[in-house]
Computed example of a mutant assay.
Amino acid sequence: MGSNNGKNSSEATEAVQKEIASEKVVVFSKTYCPYCANTKKLLSSSGVSAKIIEINLEPDQGKMTQAALLSLTSQRTVPNIFIGGKHVGGDDAIQNLARTGGLKPLLEEAGVPNII
């Protein structure tokens, strides 16, 4: 790995961490992903405002973002969801939280105004 790749990787990781810290709910998504659509629908129908980052809209940056997410979370797939700076997981995880009543307390802990 050349030093330029290391720098890009490091910058991508920093950019991802900055995004996660900038909002209470962040979803790394792809526009064509049905699981991402499920997650966005759940959040929207729950009255939760989330920052959605569609990583496929910038192919080169998106690949670096996906690699950074993998190194931060051990999860390469999308959606990759963060609430209050904490990694929640993907669509299965957030749907399960919603079903079992765990989503509302997580949102409240993060200071997210919600209407669940």
Results as ranks from 00 to 15, higher is better:
V88P: 03
Q75M: 14
K40N: 13
I83R: 11
L57H: 00
N56F: 12
A50T: 06
K40G: 13
V88W: 10
H87R: 01
N38R: 14
G84F: 03
G89V: 07
G62F: 02
E109R: 00
S49V: 13
L106P: 00
N56A: 13
S46Q: 10
V48W: 08
V88T: 10
G102R: 04
L69D: 13
L43K: 08
D92C: 12
D92Y: 13
L97M: 04
L57R: 03
V78Y: 09
K104L: 05
K41W: 00
G84W: 01
A68M: 14
I81W: 00
I81Y: 00
G47I: 01
T39A: 13
T73V: 11
Q95K: 14
S49A: 13
D91M: 05
L57W: 00
V48Y: 09
N80E: 07
T100W: 04
I55L: 07
T39Q: 08
L106I: 03
T77F: 12
F82G: 05
E109P: 01
H87L: 03
G89H: 03
Q95D: 05
A50I: 06
E58K: 12
A93G: 08
G84A: 05
R76Q: 15
S74H: 03
I83T: 14
D60I: 02
A93N: 13
E109L: 04
A98D: 02
S45W: 11
D91E: 00
E109D: 04
A110V: 15
V48D: 07
S46P: 12
I55Q: 04
T73H: 09
A110G: 12
G62L: 06
V48G: 03
I83L: 14
K63N: 12
Q61A: 15
G47Q: 07
G102L: 02
T39I: 10
L106A: 04
I53W: 09
N96Q: 13
A98E: 01
S49Y: 09
R99Q: 03
T73I: 10
L42C: 09
K40I: 14
T39P: 09
S45E: 14
I94A: 10
I52Q: 01
A98V: 01
D91F: 00
L42T: 03
T65V: 14
G47M: 08
V78T: 05
R99D: 01
K41E: 00
S44P: 06
K51G: 00
A110R: 08
L69M: 15
V78L: 07
E58R: 10
L103Q: 09
Q75P: 02
L107R: 11
G101R: 01
D91I: 02
D60P: 11
P79M: 15
S49D: 08
K40F: 14
S44I: 08
D92L: 13
V88D: 05
E108M: 10
L107Q: 08
K40Q: 15
F82A: 09
L43F: 06
I94N: 09
L70I: 04
A68E: 15
I55V: 11
V48K: 06
N96E: 11
L69E: 12
K86D: 12
N38L: 10
E54S: 04
S46N: 13
A98Y: 02
E109N: 01
K51T: 00
A98L: 01
A110P: 03
E58Y: 09
N56S: 15
A50V: 07
R76I: 15
G102Q: 03
T100I: 02
L70E: 06
P59A: 06
